[in-house]
Each structure stands twice: as C-alpha cells, then as structure tokens.
C-alpha cells in the first residue's frame, strides 16, 4: 500500500483512503477538522453538537469512501462542506439549538468590563437574529463569512449561481441591519 504524506493533496489522500489507507484518513482529518468544526458551530451554536457532526461526516467518509466521486465533484472541501451543512440542517430539524449561555465567556476578558458587556450583548443579539433568518439566507451568510470560502465556492455548495447567492446575502444583510440598528 502506498504511504500517505503531508505533501499530498486532498485528492491523492482520498484515493489512498479508498484503498483503505488509515494514515491518509488521519492526515485528511487533521488538515480539515478545525475548518469544518467552525462551520458546524456557526450552524448549531453548540460545541458538542458541532463536534458530533464533524465526527459523523468524517466517519461516514471512512466507512464508505466511495461516497467521494472525484469525477462528479471538483474539490473535496466544496463537497465536504455540503455534507457537513446537510448534517447540520438535519440536526437542526431534529432539535432546536441550545440558546447561548449567558454565563459563557464570550470575548477577550482583558477588555474593560463595560465593553465586554456591550460586545457580549452585541454578539448574542447577532446570533439570535441570524438564527431567525430564513434558512437559505442563513446558509449563505454562514458560508460566505466562513474563513477562506469564496462567494463562488459558497454558490457551488448551495447549488446556486453567483447572482442568486449575492442576492441572498444582500437580503440577509438588509434584514440584519434593520434588526441590529441599535448596535450599528
């Protein structure tokens, strides 16, 4: 069996995973866990739930590596974003996400107390308002403001063209601007 190394790109690792190479799977997990966790967290606002989703997604890939079909998907991350988003949506349908804990340390504790409180409130309100957006708008926002994901990639993940995605983002931001008036 060929050895997997950190120099190999995702597609090479996936080909090895399809041959049952555990080392390649470990490399892929280490490379992408953090990024997919962040995405899942933005959907679910709960650490345990987000970790479970990421774990499920990777284990599904390991158990059935034929799910990844390079001829049908341009990029692994684009395809896997879709997998993670679908799992998040399924979970959201099953149960309402936990509300943000008021005692949870939200921000840098070295900042002055007043500022901490204002920013914490600001963040809480923002999450609440994002959560109240229509599903597609929320999805567009989560994908586009996720680190390193271009609008084109986000559109591909959502199965939209670029203009439709931009329109969703614009509507989401208009709603948020209106509802977050007090903080802007």
């Amino acid at each position: 069996m060929a050895a997997a190394g950190p120099d190999q790109d995702d597609h090479e690792l996936l080909a090895l995973i399809q041959d049952g190479n555990g080392q390649a799977f470990a490399l892929l997990v280490e490379r992408h866990t953090e990024r997919f966790y962040r995405l899942a967290y933005r959907y679910l606002q709960n650490r345990e739930a987000a970790e479970d989703v990421v774990q499920d997604a990777f284990l599904k890939l390991w158990e059935n590596p034929a799910l990844w079909q390079p001829e049908r998907n341009s990029k692994f991350t684009t395809w896997f974003y879709r997998v993670v988003v679908n799992l998040c949506l399924d979970l959201r349908k099953k149960k309402k996400p936990a509300a943000l804990d008021d005692d949870m340390p939200l921000i840098d504790e070295r900042a002055p107390v007043d500022e901490i409180m204002i920013r914490a409130q600001e963040q809480r309100t923002l999450e609440k308002e994002i959560d109240a957006l229509p599903e597609r708008q929320r999805q567009a926002l989560n994908l586009c403001f996720d680190e390193g994901l271009s609008n084109q990639e986000a559109a591909e993940i959502m199965g939209l063209n670029l203009k439709a995605l931009q329109s969703l983002i614009m509507r989401a931001k208009t709603t948020l601007k209106e509802r977050m008036k007090a903080y802007l």
């Binding site: 555990g22 866990t33 590596p65």
Partner: peptide
C-alpha cells in the same frame, strides 16, 4: 477532536 475521529475510524470497517 481530530484524534478522537481517527481513533474511532480505526475501529470501523470500511
């Protein structure tokens, strides 16, 4: 988290 996923995968057959 990553190590947990890798460890669980080791026990799962493909």
């Amino acid at each position: 988290l990553a190590q947990r996923i890798i460890f669980k995968a080791r026990r799962l057959p493909q």
